[in-house]
Design a protein around this nucleic acid. Structure first.
Lengths: 290, 290
DNA sequence: TGATTCGTGCAACAAATGTTTCATGGTCGT
DNA sequence: ACGACCATGAAACATTTGTTGCACGAATCA
């Protein structure tokens, strides 16, 4: 018989399900409901949990067209594989010409970036913020496009902890700063692929000095994440376009600053108010209108 | 030493990585980079792909505190297990006190920012990008926290138009730049409430000189938007927290750069490739591994 | 330099895996 | 009611799994 539906192993299973023997339906439903366990745990394990015979799983796989349970599991595994290299979720980008091509590009970019933000780990940020709160001193490093993120973080943190926060390499030779890292201090390194040598050097110096290392990167495998106490991941390549996206990194930086401020309590609030008062006195800002 | 982060097996791995033997570092990096395969495929399979000895995986697991590879894999599997559902879509977060208050704050912030991005007008950005493409010269101004966005935009635009893009006030007194604006040039001013006097002065100088003024702001009523040829709006106050959010402004800047690059066609592409080749020759980046 | 420790690959091991076979019990058709 | 057929569970099968003992080589320290 020629079966058409070749979409996903799970839908193949669902389609074939009603025409299967009773016991095979049971295990079939179990697999469909626990497909993550199906890809990770062993057949006998699943059988024990489903209260079925191990052989039933092999028979199920063969019944829906696979050579055996291994083949079915391989298909399920591939179906579940996270897609690092598929930036475009549903959307067959038509890359059409015309005046609307640019608008479509922008819309896609914004949507992709919006989708990437909720995937940032709030727990990791909260932990890192606690480390920042405890740090006697905070160093921040970012190069090339990441420098902008580093500078924002530096700016916001300095609003309420002015003399304890410093960008690496701005007030003199960079090596001077690298040698100044101490235990009890925190070093934040921001970077994504391709990684600059400078950022890796900062991370290694921080690790070597025993300082708390916080890496903001696009991959857990980033070289500056090695030995880091905290790694905050964002998706740099998620959005279409030619340059990697920094939206995620910036969102992390802002959240980090916000939570650190929150942890600072009334003392931090007081410092912030002082800073704002000073800026207002220097008439930095345009006077507000009614 | 007090080790806090017991969170994920991946971070345990990362922390222990630098103190491990050479070969174990290799497989450790491989596992970190391919953790999904690590949970699904067999140890020997991974060893073959990583070009390492199977025994190295067992030793790695034991080196970071697990009883064996199976235990490590089980931990990775649990870490990767999909959350049963996401009941948080409608955000009925209880904003309770305690250790989770920070996490809730971050999650709210990220969600709000993600929601704000699609509200950015793609049409306005496309129009502004066309103006940038036509400009003989591009000036960029941003102060205080907006400086980071200005610098990123400057950086990305200079990747393919190096001698026509310039930040206002970095190469000498700012007034010098303000007097240099000419018709046919474009001036981008980034700012939100409260508005700095400096940014307003730049906008007025641009308007007075007959240059194309592009304002990136949080409101159509922003003073630097007066007389602007293009106004690109983002939501600075949309997210909870103490500092206004720059995510929207950054997204606008990135889209602006991407579309301008796209309009530049092959010439822009050629310039970008030249720049990248130069950076690679200067060994700015860490060499990629196979 | 010599002794020792440590890291590493290879090969053999026991345990666990998926598969197959076989015997049993039930169902359907004639 | 008898035989053919099929679903089902248990046990035996060959493979593959993760692990460990062992030998060799490099680095370390006296």
């Amino acid at each position: 018989m020629v079966v058409s539906a070749k979409s996903s192993p799970l839908s193949e299973l669902r389609i074939a399900l009603p025409s299967l023997p009773l016991r095979l339906q049971e295990v079939g439903r179990f697999v469909a409901a626990n497909d993550y366990d199906a890809t990770t745990r062993s057949m006998r394990d699943l059988a024990a949990e489903a209260g079925a015979d191990p052989a039933a799983f092999t028979r199920l796989a063969k019944a829906i067209g696979y050579s055996g349970w291994d083949a079915l599991r391989a298909a399920l595994t591939e179906a579940r594989r996270p897609s690092p290299a598929s930036p475009f979720s549903g959307r067959a980008r038509s890359r059409r010409e015309g005046p609307n091509a640019d608008v479509a590009l922008i819309t896609d970019k914004l949507e992709a970036e919006a989708a990437g933000l909720p995937r940032i780990s709030a727990h990791a940020i909260a932990d890192a913020a606690r480390a920042l709160h405890d740090a006697k001193r905070i160093w921040i490093a970012g190069y090339r496009s990441c420098r902008s993120v580093a500078e924002l973080l530096n700016y916001e943190l300095r609003l309420f902890r002015p003399e304890q926060v410093q960008l690496v390499g701005v007030s003199g030779p960079e090596d001077l700063d690298l040698g100044a890292f101490r235990p009890g201090e925190a070093v934040i390194v921001i970077g994504f692929m391709p990684y600059t040598n400078a950022s890796v050097r900062v991370a290694q110096a921080a690790y070597g000095a025993g300082a708390t290392l916080i890496a903001v990167a696009d991959s857990i495998a980033a070289p500056m994440a090695e030995g880091a106490d905290h790694v905050l991941l964002f998706e740099a390549a998620s959005s279409p376009g030619f340059f990697p996206s920094l939206t995620g990194a910036l969102a992390i930086a802002q959240s980090l600053a916000a939570v650190t401020f929150s942890l600072g309590g009334t003392a931090a609030k007081k410092r912030l108010e002082e800073t704002e008062a000073r800026l207002a006195a220097a008439s930095t800002y345009v006077a507000e209108k009614g």
